[in-house]
Design a protein around this nucleic acid. Structure first.
Lengths: 252, 252
DNA sequence: TGCCCACGGATACGCAGCGATACAAAACCC
DNA sequence: GGGTTTTGTATCGCTGCGTATCCGTGGGCA
């Protein structure tokens, strides 16, 4: 498969700065997405697998500090994404890096893009190293997700039906299903699914997602004709038409 | 969590290093105490409420690993204090981070103080974030780790099944399994596994990890076709699909 | 209503990634 | 130093997943 690029999300209200930084970083071989405010940032985080966020402190509406704190506190799947904060000189650096905010580094303006790139690489190198086993015992979130008549065991990475029969999943199938259960009842385009499962973009006439959905439906014993779980939305994508409830898989 | 300064204990036999680090960290707003050996460390722990210990591995007398293990096993009030281990590159990183030793992170020398500060912040943030009452189990020093139907005896370095039958492991097999057990449910790439088990980089078409996994699966009586424990994630690596719990191996 | 046609389902097939076995080199052990 | 155990290399075969292709179908439009 391809050399998976790191994906940077740049959040800044100034359009020129956003584009300038994105252009520079892309020249250095990074992949970039931009967002103008907290709302766009949130939506970008839902649509892409982001490796690092560059966040401006000074912004109208929610400022960078607030956004960073919310990100960390939110507990979403991307709550631990590294953050590099862009600050004006003289701001309270300690607080930014401090425990409350939880940024991974900061860069005072003005700066040269080269410096930004260097810091991004440094942070990525650090975080790339294995996360030390912070969460040894039972995970905060649950290990079994119920939807329809199925349970998805997120530890064993397989399905269990009502009779307790285990249905194994391949790696790609598990990733795809994970994405669906993370976004139930919302239509996911092929681009989004591609992005969220593989972190890469789809070629123009890529049908691999269709095929994967087809294989997943077989696993779920869901027919394409009358799908109970994964419904096709013509010209748009697919939807998981079921409610997902979290339950911990503790056995008595 | 507010203005109360975090208090770091630096344990290193080299006086210059101790002072250098303490000065730097104090400039960053942390409070520091230093200790030259295990005895001083113990006494500092009795006299102060320490938030994090920076511990050098290489020391005359008791080395850092021993001190860390004793700290965890001792069961004192500070038995769960986070530990950041300073190591020479190529040391047995998986054991350091592993559940047996119970360090929270390590930093290979040489490093820049800034890096140390960043990691300290990261650890404090993580441990702060944990609910206050879930004490101990995370890092309780234990000689036996349970996962699936197996127990891993980390002293004898072998496996025990439900019937008490002992399955021996070779050195490489044990190291690999330790890494998996220290990072359950996360997909580990071949590069990471190579790094953590051997401390060296993989050649382009190195298949030694595959082979080792295969041998380990045999030991665990886990088939590659329908793996219950070590699952293959195509193009990515392997994942231990089980929860790991630390238990002390005391038998009634 | 009937035709068109684009979209998506299904099947076939190829390839690269992985599993397994055999064998060689290296390390270890009396 | 010879035998044993462990670990890496070479090779072959299988399979998961992607591409190619064909077919069913459903909606738009006259």
């Amino acid at each position: 498969m391809i050399n998976q690029q790191d994906h940077i999300l740049i959040v800044d209200d100034d359009r020129d700065i956003r584009n300038l930084l994105a252009d520079y970083l892309e020249k250095q071989g990074l992949r970039c997405t931009t967002a103008a405010d907290g709302r766009e940032m949130k939506s970008a985080l839902e649509r892409h697998r982001i490796d690092l966020i560059v966040l401006d402190v000074m912004m109208p509406g929610d400022d960078g500090l607030t956004l960073c704190r919310n990100l960390r506190a939110g507990g979403g799947t991307q709550a631990n994404t590294p953050v590099l904060m862009l600050t004006a000189r003289g701001e309270d650096m300690d607080r930014i890096l401090g425990l409350e905010m939880g940024a991974d580094d900061y860069l005072p303006k003005p700066f040269v893009p080269r410096e930004l790139y260097a810091r991004i690489r440094a942070i990525l190198r650090r975080t790339r190293a294995l996360p030390p086993n912070m969460e040894a015992p039972a995970h905060a979130h649950s290990t079994e997700l119920h939807f329809g008549t199925w349970r998805l065991d997120t530890i064993a990475r397989h399905l269990i039906d009502t009779d307790g029969v285990v249905v194994p999943l391949s790696g790609a199938e598990y990733r795809l299903l994970s994405v669906f259960v993370a976004h139930p009842q919302s239509v996911l385009s092929r681009d989004q699914l591609m992005e969220l499962t593989q972190g890469r973009e789809a070629d123009v006439f890529d049908r691999s997602i269709d095929l994967l959905v087809s294989r997943l439906r077989q696993r779920l014993r869901d027919s394409a004709r009358e799908p109970a779980l994964i419904k096709t939305v013509r010209n748009e994508g697919y939807v998981l038409a079921a409610t997902v409830t979290a339950a911990n898989g503790d056995k008595p």
